[in-house]
Computed example of a mutant assay.
Amino acid sequence: MPRQSIGPRLVRRRGKPNYYVRYIEPETGRQKDVSTNTRDSEEAQEILEEFLRDRRLSRSSRALPPYRVKIAEVLDAHHARLSKTERGDRFLCSMQHILEFWKDACLDAITPDAVLDYETQNVRTDKKPGRARATVRRELSDLRAAVKAAAVNHKVHAIVFPKLPRDGAPRERWLRRDEFDQLFAEAANEYRSAEPLQLFLMIAYYTGARSGAIMGLRWSDIDFDRNVVDYRLPDRGEVTVDHKPRAITPMAPPLRAYLLQRYKAYETVPEFVFHQKLDHTRRVNSVVKGFRATVERCGFKDVTPHTLRHTRVTELRTMGMQPHQVDAFLAMTAETQNRVYTHADDDDLQAMAMRIA
């Protein structure tokens, strides 16, 4: 008659100073010893109790406690889910910065003090280099999303993620038409990215869409008969991506003419609007590097790809469009328009003053 298992217990192995936890693997039925890395009996007993507690949790659920799951594992799993989407490259960048700070730590190391230290060490100031506050906040938001996904998939018990750093103040920068014309003309001098950069500038300026939505466009998303650009995800018609609403945006005549000219120039129309010059099957995922270089040559300050979205909203409101019309054009609520995106030009304010007089 086989001897009944007495469960996990502490043992000493010949020639080894430390205690071991001995148990039977349920999957294989084999005996296994795991070192406690201590020769102190009281410490070893505490480790055994922790082992038993984790064992009970793992039997009731696949989820593990945060102190048993490494941050790197959670990030890897989340990146694997995002790697085939437009968010994959951006998340990988966040992941690299996060691991530089937390290294090989487990999820229980994500404390309010650690989040504050991450912000302090990485946010750019006048006295030290770094990254923009909004960028650091986005990295922590990516980490929070990865942890939440792990909990939803029962890989780890849910944790209360610390409060994220405050978001930066809305930028007041937007482009006048002559500034946009200068930026577009200067983009032609980019050695490698002139064509995709100018294409990006045209679409961003006239539709006001976010960079990620623009760079993910397929030619099938552009309907010349209906005269619209459909930013919703293909085949699913999702109007919200990453909690950001997507719109079906009408094309202004200059944009339609520009896109139609490029479309007709193809012998075989590629899938994606942004692609390599010599290999149309390879996507171009970003024009940020060329954008920054062009902005620097123009001598502009505080201009990013998102500035073009600020510009479009401001111009639509200046033209007299009502908030609900702007919302339909850009999928942007009136509250967001008023809080973040609309700016008053000095000339407009002077004209208003004259009308009052």
Rank of each mutant, 00 (worst) to 15 (best):
N189W: 06
I214L: 06
L57R: 14
D178M: 04
L10N: 07
I159E: 01
P196S: 01
V156R: 01
T307F: 12
F224L: 03
T249I: 00
R282A: 09
G212W: 09
S60W: 14
G168D: 12
D108H: 06
R256D: 03
E73Q: 11
S220L: 12
R192Q: 02
V284L: 12
P323F: 10
F274T: 01
A344C: 04
Y20R: 12
F200E: 08
D117P: 09
F184W: 11
K155S: 03
E186M: 15
A77T: 04
T135C: 11
V69Y: 00
R236Y: 15
V228Y: 10
P245G: 15
E179P: 02
I248Q: 15
P250N: 09
V69D: 00
G88V: 11
T111M: 07
P253F: 05
Y206R: 02
R166W: 10
R173F: 07
K70S: 04
P112N: 05
A185M: 13
Y266I: 00
R53G: 04
R13S: 14
S41F: 11
G216H: 06
R53C: 01
G15C: 00
A194W: 03
P270D: 13
T125N: 03
W219D: 01
Q337I: 10
V147M: 07
Y23W: 11
D33Q: 08
A334C: 11
I203Q: 02
K103T: 01
D346G: 04
R22D: 02
Q325W: 09
E27Q: 15
A145S: 07
V21Y: 09
A149I: 05
E42W: 03
V269H: 06
K16P: 14
C93W: 05
A252V: 11
V273S: 01
H324N: 15
H343T: 13
Q337W: 08
V152S: 05
L199K: 08
Q121F: 04
V326W: 07
A351Q: 14
Y19F: 14
N18V: 12
G212T: 09
L330M: 15
W102I: 10
M251A: 02
A209I: 01
L255G: 06
L116F: 09
P170F: 05
R137M: 11
F180K: 04
P112C: 10
Q276C: 08
L10S: 06
R282Y: 03
